[in-house]
Design a protein around this nucleic acid. Structure first.
Length: 152
DNA sequence: GCCAACGTTGGC
DNA sequence: GCCAACGTTGGC
């Protein structure tokens, strides 16, 4: 079992949007970063757990927990000229970008803000709080996962 | 293969 | 809206 974190801008797609989807499940399209793609493609397994993180908003932070509900498969939005994330270099016969499905597990009882995560000395090694981190999909160490759930 | 220019991310 | 950090692109 691996642990992850998915970043999203709540204006685009929030935890409440996910909760409204059929079976509370949605595909995680739009990842256009190789490192993030490789995590999904090579390391994610069905049943892995992940934090749902809101970025670029009033209070950036962790707002919920989701589970990985599928293996990685081609991100079809890369083939759609009208899509915001269209990539002419991704060929349907040789897709460049992948995605997984994520399923809502639950919302956290409260938002655990980025500010608070940064203040916890036990979490200083966490990728999310390190400087200049821009990955939208990243691994979370189990020890950090456990600490965060404890302070919920 | 180097690296400057450029675009994007995302906290603040 | 600003800007630092980072990834990607493309000229050479």
């Amino acid at each position: 079992m691996n642990y992850w974190l998915f970043k999203t801008e709540p204006m685009e797609f929030s935890i409440d949007d996910l909760a409204k989807k059929p079976a509370k499940t949605e595909h995680w399209d739009g990842v256009r970063n190789y490192q993030a793609r490789n995590f999904m493609r090579d390391e994610m397994k069905v049943g892995d757990k992940a934090f749902f993180y809101h970025s670029n908003c009033e209070e950036p932070g962790i707002v919920g927990i989701v589970t990985v509900a599928s293996k990685a498969y081609p991100d079809h939005t890369a083939f759609d000229k009208k899509d915001k994330h269209f990539d002419p270099k991704s060929d349907p016969d040789k897709p460049r970008w992948m995605m997984v499905d994520v399923k809502m597990a639950r919302k956290l009882k409260r938002t655990i803000s980025l500010k608070e995560l940064k203040e916890r000395s036990a979490l200083t090694g966490m990728r999310l709080v390190q400087r200049g981190n821009r990955l939208s999909v990243m691994p979370v160490e189990k020890k950090h996962w456990d600490i965060i759930l404890k302070i919920e």
